[in-house]
């Protein structure tokens, strides 16, 4: 079997979703950890140092290219799978099955993913794009991202939008985390139980910490 045959088979396409999904999950850990420096209560000194490292060191900047590639692959493959899967039942049922046997969020990964994508467009144009364009997209002068957050999160509607983005992410992860490992072939019940529990914890804690960032700025906690 050729590589192309492997990755265009139904299981191969899911493997792509699974591997890029796990890669993005790992990115979330890096992102949330670095951003948590806003709570160092030092006027953003530690946070800006972290941001400076990520923006000026060549290794994270190369990894950044990989991140966008992985993200794009996850988005494009996700949309293609969603449309292909929907086309497999030309005539639908008069009485929908609904939630008899599956959770709504496991059936709504396409919609949840699209909501996250809309949020990401706003989020990237809020921070990443202005910062990188200030750098000339290479290793030039950065902007003060802590001050930028401070200003951005004074608007209530922005804070609400970010919280909505985090909620979409939480539901997306609640199915995606454990599903990614099933697709990779984890069938051992002992490990599946561990991954399920970890997945639930991850889906609640990470989006919650993210959501607390705009809230902290808006409420003046930092």
């Amino acid at each position: 079997m050729k590589w192309s045959e492997m990755f265009t088979s139904s299981i191969g396409k899911k493997l792509v979703m699974s591997l890029t999904g796990i890669f993005l999950i790992l990115f979330l850990i890096v992102h949330v950890s670095l951003n948590a420096c806003i709570w160092a209560m030092d006027g953003g000194e530690m946070f800006n140092k972290g941001a400076h490292f990520m923006g000026s060191n060549v290794v994270p900047r190369i990894l950044e290219v990989g991140l966008f590639a992985g993200l794009l692959l996850h988005i494009i493959q996700g949309f293609m799978l969603e449309f292909q899967n929907r086309s497999k039942r030309r005539q639908g049922y008069a009485v929908a099955m609904g939630s008899k046997g599956s959770k709504w969020y496991s059936r709504s990964m396409g919609i949840l993913g699209s909501l996250i994508l809309i949020f990401l467009v706003v989020h990237i144009s809020d921070f990443w794009f202005p910062n990188r364009s200030n750098q000339g997209f290479l290793l030039g002068e950065e902007i003060n991202l802590y001050d930028k957050m401070q200003v951005t999160f004074q608007e209530l509607w922005v804070v609400i939008l970010y919280i909505a983005g985090c909620i979409s992410l939480a539901w997306h992860l609640l199915h995606g985390f454990q599903s990614a490992f099933r697709t990779l072939g984890v069938s051992n019940k002992k490990y599946l139980a561990l991954l399920n529990a970890t997945g639930i914890g991850f889906s609640i804690i990470i989006p919650f910490v993210f959501a607390m960032m705009p809230v902290s700025f808006y409420m003046g906690w930092v």
């Binding site: 139904s10 292909q84 099955m97 008899k100 599956s102 959770k103 059936r107 199915h175 099933r182």
Partner: peptide
């Protein structure tokens, strides 16, 4: 799996509806 794809079945998204019924 190749034959399954050829027959026009969709890809699995692990929702669990199959197991339930």
């Amino acid at each position: 799996v190749a034959q399954m794809d050829k027959e026009g079945f969709g890809a699995c998204t692990n929702t669990g509806a199959c197991e339930a019924v």
